[in-house]
Amino acid sequence: MRAAPRRRRRVPAALLVPAIAGLAFLVLPLIGLLVRAPWSTMPQRLAEPEVLQALWLSLRTATAATAVCLVFGVPIAWLLARVDFPGRGLVRALVTVPLVLPPVVGGVALLLVFGRGGLIGSWMEDTFGIGLPFTTAGVVVAMAFVAMPFLVVSVEGALRGADERYEEAAATLGAGRWTAFTRVTLPLIAPGVAAGAVLSWARALGEFGATITFAGNFPGRTQTMPIAVYLALETDLEAAIVLSLILLAVSVVVLAGLRDRWTAAP
């Protein structure tokens, strides 16, 4: 008997069966969405002003929230990765709290701080005459709050993976820390920053709990896609399916954009 050149090892049923069941569990709802979609009326439905309004608001606010995450999150990540300060572990834990916090709780917490009677909210109201709750800016704040950890974790990982000695080489060539960061480190970790930004953007796009708590539900101002889906579910199931399909399509596009990064085997 001659051994097969590439003998395939048997997969134990105890692992195979739950794996297949799990896959079905993940994929079936998406198929259900596609099967139940009102394909014949889809073009009219997509052109409805409420749909376009919610979609446009979602895209705008998610992008703005991602920008906020980049502006504040990249420096946080740099501090965590490069500066050895007391309480660094605690800061890292605090940054990741929104990751595990129920978004509704996040929304309540934001209200307590930025709301009319809140710590910062009352001061902002008195000084600038602006309030964040129940405004489009409030949507961005709520989204940034829940999406920031994704960016920080992703960028900090990239920074830790990047060879710190490039920064030393830059220093010997006359670059201060800021110049070394912008000219050397940032270009080196650009893929990590991009991945973090996409993750944050996807998280912001899907945000529901914190948004509805902090910014409410005003069509055209704070009614984002997920909120529109939820409300449509009570009145018009088909509309909810259409809105969901749009979000699904956006997610698939994002995943396709990251294909090489995450769906390739490590």
């Binding site: 080489a169 830059a170 010997t172 201060g176 050397v184 080196l188």
Partner: peptide, 18 residues
Amino acid sequence: PAERRRIGVVFQDYLLFP
């Protein structure tokens, strides 16, 4: 600090900015 010394360094693995 390093960036204000007039010292040039050739590193062992060069560390050319990729």
